[in-house]
């Protein structure tokens, strides 16, 4: 199930990466890597939600994604909870959030029938179901230790590491990543597609930097930086700047 989903994602990412390669400036010390983004498990956001209703279950579908993705998402969900659903349960699909074509309804009904569930379209729709898909402000995660090889920090918001990130360690954040120490591992900011996400470290020696769908790998011989650096996407490529440079630019912008 994940495969299809990742393929859809890959296509988008590949395009992004390609753009990155084409605009790569000659003095960029990090190389842009034309490849696909890893599909994080958490990337499988809940596009499909089952809720209890008066008549059985209610199926809430996200209106913003393609139908195929929803179908895959739903199939995965049903597969993972085969024993959870009792046969003959009525599944209501509110029509307002997502106008399903006849063919789509047919496919949905067929999929549900495979698990002994009965499809039914209903017209009432509560406002809170729509609100469920609004992105929420997620609190940032502070980790006050060194992240060692094989350890993984995954968080939907920003992540602050008060320590080092060693080689072989991974930090994956939905938002920014700040390392108050030396960063030698793999860091992925904006893992759910936020291209404004940045990575800041006292000493940025990461083997690989990922922001949203872009992957940049360190040159094979990387000199030790003598001051804090920040990685961000500018004009479609990942660039590394010193923090002081970045601050100056921000001030200029504000002035």
């Amino acid at each position: 199930m994940i495969v299809v989903w990742s393929r859809i994602l890959d296509l988008k990412i590949n395009f992004l990466n390609l753009a990155g390669l084409l605009t790569k400036s000659a003095n960029s010390k990090w190389q842009i890597y034309v490849t696909c983004k890893k599909t994080w498990e958490m990337d499988m956001r809940e596009y499909v939600i089952f809720k209890g209703s008066r008549n059985g279950l209610q199926l809430v579908l996200d209106a913003s994604v393609e139908f195929e993705v929803l179908l895959e998402n739903l199939a995965a969900k049903l597969e993972s909870a085969v024993d959870f659903f009792s046969r003959g349960t009525m599944v209501e699909v509110p029509a307002k959030v997502r106008n399903l074509s006849f063919q789509e309804q047919e496919e949905l009904s067929k999929l549900l029938a495979g698990y002994g569930l009965v499809f039914r379209e209903v017209n009432d729709q509560c406002a809170d179901d729509i609100a469920m898909f609004e992105p929420k402000e997620i609190e940032r995660l502070v980790v006050a230790k060194t992240i060692r090889s094989g350890q993984e920090i995954i968080h939907q918001g920003a992540v602050v590491i008060d320590g080092d990130v060693n080689p072989g360690a991974e930090v994956i954040a939905g938002g920014d990543i700040i390392v108050n120490g030396t960063c030698r591992g793999m860091v992925h900011a904006g893992a759910y597609g936020d291209i404004r996400a940045t990575i800041t470290a006292q000493r940025l020696l990461a083997s690989q930097i990922r922001i949203a769908g872009l992957i940049a790998r360190a040159p094979d011989h990387l000199d030790q930086p003598d001051q804090a650096e920040v990685a961000l996407i500018e004009d479609g490529i990942v660039i590394i700047k010193t923090v002081s440079m970045q601050e100056d630019e921000m001030q200029k912008l504000q002035a």
């Binding site: 994940i2 890893k38 083997s207």
Partner: peptide, 23 residues
């Protein structure tokens, strides 16, 4: 092998079906 910084997918990604072998 000096290829650490090039890793995107790994063996478990292949067996889990997260990517194709060639990737």
């Amino acid at each position: 092998m000096g290829l650490e910084n090039r890793i995107v997918y790994d063996l478990v990604d292949v067996t889990d079906g997260n990517c194709r072998l060639k990737q």
